[in-house]
Computed example of a mutant assay.
Amino acid sequence: MVSLARYIRNIRRTGIKQWWHQMQYIGDAKAGTLVGADQFGNRYFENLSPEDEVPGRHRWVDFAQHYNNATQVPPEWHSWLQHIRHLPPTEDAVMKESSPPWKAPWVENLTGTRGAYRPYNTVVPKIIAWQPKVMVRG
């Protein structure tokens, strides 16, 4: 349950412009410290004050693009958001050194977009659609 006092306090801390942005994209007024950003421009925040945030909702992401899609969050930041890792990737020594040279760069899931994978079909169809023959009338 979100209290009115918390809501107003967060509006005062962030300002009207940031409050409007948050209401459009995450639907809640939140104030916290910037923890870091990823290679796609997503910004990650945290608020550890127990009177300000509901437990379990004190870490959040501000997406760089206009559509919020969980596949836009890289795995290292996802593990921090879901409390799998205590430290963010910018501070965690294991995450900084765990990027092997053979690892492919991370890309978001493009299903439902123009960039989605579409396989090329090489099989001859069993049913051939009827094509009408046009004859010249004379």
Rank of each mutant, 00 (worst) to 15 (best):
T33V: 05
R13S: 07
Y44H: 03
H21C: 00
D52H: 07
K17M: 08
P50D: 10
L34K: 12
Q22C: 05
Y44M: 02
F45R: 03
P50H: 08
F63H: 12
V54Q: 13
I16R: 00
A31M: 03
W20M: 00
W60R: 13
V54E: 15
I11Y: 09
S49P: 09
N10M: 06
H21S: 02
V35C: 12
R12D: 10
D28E: 09
Q18K: 07
G41V: 02
T33D: 14
M23H: 10
P55F: 09
Y25K: 03
R57Y: 15
Q18Y: 07
I26F: 05
G15I: 04
M23G: 00
E53V: 13
H21Q: 01
P55W: 02
E46N: 05
S49D: 15
I26G: 10
I16D: 10
V54T: 13
R12T: 03
P50G: 08
K17A: 10
Y44A: 05
I16G: 00
F63P: 12
H58I: 02
V61R: 04
K17S: 07
D28V: 09
G27R: 03
N10C: 15
Q24E: 03
L48C: 11
E51P: 12
F63S: 04
H58P: 10
F45W: 15
L48R: 14
A31N: 10
H58E: 15
V54F: 13
W19N: 01
Q18I: 05
F45C: 00
P55G: 12
Y25C: 00
Q24P: 02
R13G: 01
Q22R: 12
D28T: 09
D28Q: 12
R59G: 15
V54H: 12
D52Y: 10
Y25I: 00
Q39R: 13
R12C: 10
T14S: 13
M23E: 07
W20S: 00
Y44F: 08
E46K: 04
R12P: 07
F63M: 06
Y44V: 01
Q22K: 05
R59L: 11
A31I: 06
N10R: 06
L48F: 02
L34V: 06
R13L: 11
R59D: 14
Q22G: 04
N10F: 03
R12A: 06
T33S: 12
R43H: 03
F40D: 14
I26H: 10
V54M: 11
Q22P: 14
P50T: 08
R59S: 11
R13F: 02
R43N: 03
H58R: 07
S49E: 14
V61G: 14
R13E: 05
G32M: 03
R59F: 09
R57W: 09
W19K: 00
E53Q: 15
S49A: 13
A29W: 07
L34G: 00
Q22L: 04
L48T: 13
V61I: 11
G36Y: 02
F45T: 02
G27M: 06
E46F: 02
